[in-house]
C-alpha cells in the first residue's frame, strides 16, 4: 500500500506545477513593481512647459502629496486619461505634469484642447527625467509624498474606476 502511494508523487508534482503555471498565465505580463517605490524622487532641473526661462527642481514636490503624471501630445491614451486627471484636480489632488519627449508647441496645444489639471508642467524634451523615473511608456503616474518620496507608481492609463478605487485612497494614505 505504501509503495502504491509513492507512485502518486509524480502526479502530485504535476499538480503543483499546473497550479503555478495556471496562476502565471492569468497574470498580466506587463504588470510589475516599480523599482522606485520608497525611493526619493530623482533629481532634475527642467524648464516648465509654459516658460522656457523658469527652472524647477525637486523642491517643487516637497511639502504636499503630489501626483506626477508623465504625458505627451503624441500619446493617444494620455488624451483618454485627461478627464480622470481633471476630476482628481477638482477633488483637491495636487498634480504636476511632465511633458515627455514632446515639443513645446504640441504640449501647449494638447493642454489647450484637453484641459490643464496640472499646477505646473515640466518640459522634458529629451526624456531625461522620464528615464530616471523608469518610464517606458506614457502615461505613467507617480504619487510623491510630502517628503518627496515616491509612494505609488501607476503604469498606464488611470481609468475612471481607478480614480475612486486606487488613486484617491493612495493619496489619503500618504497624506
Amino acid at each position: 500500500m505504501k509503495r502504491r502511494l509513492l507512485l502518486l508523487i509524480p502526479l502530485a508534482i504535476f499538480a503543483v506545477l499546473v497550479a503555478f503555471f495556471y496562476r502565471g498565465l492569468a497574470k498580466d505580463p506587463a504588470a510589475r513593481d516599480s523599482a522606485l517605490l520608497a525611493k526619493p524622487f530623482p533629481a532634475f532641473e527642467l524648464s516648465t512647459l509654459a516658460d522656457a526661462s523658469q527652472r524647477l527642481d525637486r523642491s517643487l514636490l516637497e511639502g504636499q502629496v503630489t501626483l506626477v503624471n508623465v504625458w505627451g501630445e503624441w500619446c493617444p491614451t494620455c488624451k483618454q486619461e485627461m478627464p480622470q486627471l481633471l476630476e482628481l484636480a477638482d477633488r483637491g489632488v495636487r498634480l504636476v505634469g511632465v511633458d515627455y519627449k514632446d515639443t513645446r508647441e504640441n504640449g501647449r496645444r494638447f493642454l489647450d484642447e484637453y484641459g490643464d489639471p496640472f499646477t505646473v508642467s515640466l518640459f522634458d524634451p529629451e526624456g531625461s527625467l522620464g528615464f530616471d523615473l523608469g518610464v517606458y511608456g506614457a502615461p505613467e503616474s507617480f504619487l510623491v509624498d510630502a517628503d518627496g518620496v515616491i509612494r505609488y507608481h501607476h503604469t498606464g492609463y488611470i481609468t475612471p474606476q481607478d480614480v475612486e478605487q486606487v488613486i484617491l485612497p493612495q493619496v489619503a494614505q500618504w497624506q
Binding site: R32, S34, A35, L133, G134
Partner: peptide, 8 residues
C-alpha cells in the same frame, strides 16, 4: 538600469 526599471 535596475534602479530605474527593476530586476525585469
Amino acid at each position: 538600469m535596475i534602479s530605474r526599471f527593476g530586476d525585469y
